[in-house]
C-alpha cells in the first residue's frame, strides 16, 4: 500500500491505496472526480488527460503513488467558479462535443496546447497536437474550431491584461 498525498483542484487530499492503483482510478474512485474517463487500455485515447504539475498527461498511465506530492488539475477544477474556462466556453459555443465522453480529456489537452503556443495556433498544428485524443462523434471539425477560437480569445485576453498592467 502507498500513502498518496496530492493537491487536486486546489485542495490537499490524501489516501492509502494499493501501489498498482492508477492515478485515474484514484481520482475517480477515491476522490469521486468522475469527469476524468478511461476509454482505452493502451494510453492512446486521451479521455483521461489531467494536468500534473502544469503538464497535460494521461492519468491512466501513471500510478497514483508516482503522482504523490504533485499538484493536479482535473476538468472539475478548470472553471473559475461559475465562470467557464475559455476553452470550456469555446467547446460549448462551437459544438465541440457530442456524447461528452472524450470532452474532459480534449479540453485538458487543449488548454495545455494553447499554453504551449502563446504565439497562436493554426489548424494544422491543432490537428497534429490532437494526436493523443480520440473523438468518435464530432469528426474533430468543431473541436478544431473551438480550440482555434479559444486560443484567439485567450491571446486577446492576455494582451488586454498586459495592456492594463502597462
Amino acid at each position: 500500500m502507498s500513502d498518496v498525498s496530492l493537491t487536486v483542484n486546489g485542495k490537499r487530499v490524501s489516501g492509502s491505496v494499493e501501489d498498482r492503483t492508477l492515478l485515474v482510478h484514484f481520482l475517480r474512485e477515491n476522490l469521486g472526480l468522475t469527469g476524468t474517463h478511461v476509454g482505452c487500455d493502451t494510453s492512446q485515447c486521451g479521455t483521461c488527460v489531467v494536468h500534473v504539475d502544469g503538464r497535460a498527461v494521461k492519468s491512466c498511465t501513471m500510478l497514483a503513488a508516482q503522482a504523490s506530492g504533485s499538484t493536479i488539475v482535473t476538468i472539475e477544477g478548470l472553471a473559475n467558479g461559475a465562470e467557464l474556462h475559455p476553452v470550456q466556453a469555446a467547446f460549448k459555443e462551437h459544438h465541440g462535443l457530442q456524447c461528452g465522453f472524450c470532452t474532459p480529456g480534449m479540453i485538458m489537452a487543449a488548454t495545455d496546447m494553447i499554453a504551449r503556443h502563446p504565439q497562436g495556433l493554426d489548424e494544422a498544428t491543432v490537428r497534429a497536437e490532437l494526436d493523443g485524443n480520440i473523438c468518435r462523434c464530432t469528426g474533430y471539425h468543431n473541436i478544431v474550431k473551438a480550440i482555434l477560437a479559444a486560443s484567439q480569445a485567450m491571446s486577446k485576453g492576455a494582451k488586454g491584461k498586459a495592456k492594463q498592467a502597462a
Binding site: 494510453s43 488527460v49 503538464r55 497535460a56 498527461v57 494521461k58 498511465t61 501513471m62 497536437e129 493523443g132
Partner: peptide, 9 residues
C-alpha cells in the same frame, strides 16, 4: 514521439 501527453512523461 507518441503524442503531446506522452512526450511530457
Amino acid at each position: 514521439i507518441g503524442d503531446p501527453a506522452v512526450r511530457y512523461k
